[in-house]
Amino acid sequence: MSKTTFFHIAPMLLGAGSVILPGNWGRVLKLYTNANDVFYREHILETIRANEYPDKPSRLNALFVLDSFEEAQRYLNINNRTGLIYEVAVDVNVSTIHRANYNIPTSNFNLLEGMPDVARKYWGEIPTENIETLIPDSAVVIKLCQHV
């Protein structure tokens, strides 16, 4: 395992040394009380992962990080306008992470019929752009990089 720096986007203000635990996305999804596109998308992603890619970390129990500040800015502009970008330190065990194209699950397709194939692409393809890394471990905030 080696200590690696990444960039993480979160909606709250955190100070240097704060620990970000994995699993927040799963916690948020469990609070939904009615069906919607996001819940269905994540359900199919998790079902395909558990059945066909069980060695991959669950999106529901992972921490999402990006490799560079520039990539974090792109992600923020596309997917999370209310987030803040943090530089974080993570102990990385390469065998437990998953790298994927973060635009695949939100691309334009018929949600009901297309989501299983989209999930297989997310879990099975090696990404070349828009790369997010799922890590099943916590991260420590080094600094806030961008405050809006």
Rank of each mutant, 00 (worst) to 15 (best):
D55P: 00
E70F: 00
V65I: 09
E87V: 02
W25G: 00
L60S: 10
S107F: 01
V118I: 15
N103V: 07
A100C: 06
V38T: 12
A35P: 04
A35R: 13
I20A: 02
S58H: 12
L76Q: 14
D91I: 09
Y40L: 14
F69Y: 15
D37K: 12
D117Q: 14
S107M: 11
V88R: 08
S58C: 11
Y75K: 06
G26D: 08
Y102W: 15
G26L: 06
R41I: 04
V38F: 04
N77S: 09
A72C: 02
N61W: 00
K30G: 14
E70I: 01
G124I: 05
V65M: 06
F39Y: 14
L66P: 05
E113N: 12
I48F: 09
A100N: 03
A50S: 14
A35W: 14
I48H: 07
N108K: 11
R41D: 03
V94D: 13
V92R: 03
M115A: 06
V94S: 12
K56T: 04
L29T: 01
S95Y: 09
R74D: 13
A50G: 04
T106R: 12
F69K: 13
Y75S: 02
D67Q: 13
V28C: 00
A89T: 08
L112M: 13
L63S: 04
K56D: 06
E71Q: 09
S95L: 12
A35C: 07
N61K: 14
H43A: 15
H98N: 10
Y75T: 00
N80Y: 15
N80F: 15
N103R: 14
L60E: 13
I97S: 00
P57D: 07
D67L: 05
K56M: 12
L111W: 10
V65Q: 00
S95F: 08
V88H: 10
T96Y: 02
G83V: 03
V118A: 11
P22S: 00
S58V: 10
H43F: 15
T96C: 01
T106V: 14
V118C: 03
K121H: 08
V94H: 10
T33A: 00
A50N: 12
E70A: 08
A100L: 04
D37E: 13
V65H: 04
Y53N: 09
Y75R: 05
N108D: 14
A62R: 02
N61L: 08
N36K: 08
E46N: 10
R81A: 10
A50Y: 11
L84F: 11
W25D: 03
R74H: 09
D117T: 08
N101V: 04
P105M: 03
S68L: 04
V90E: 02
N61E: 15
G124S: 05
L63R: 01
V90A: 04
E113A: 12
T106Q: 09
L76H: 11
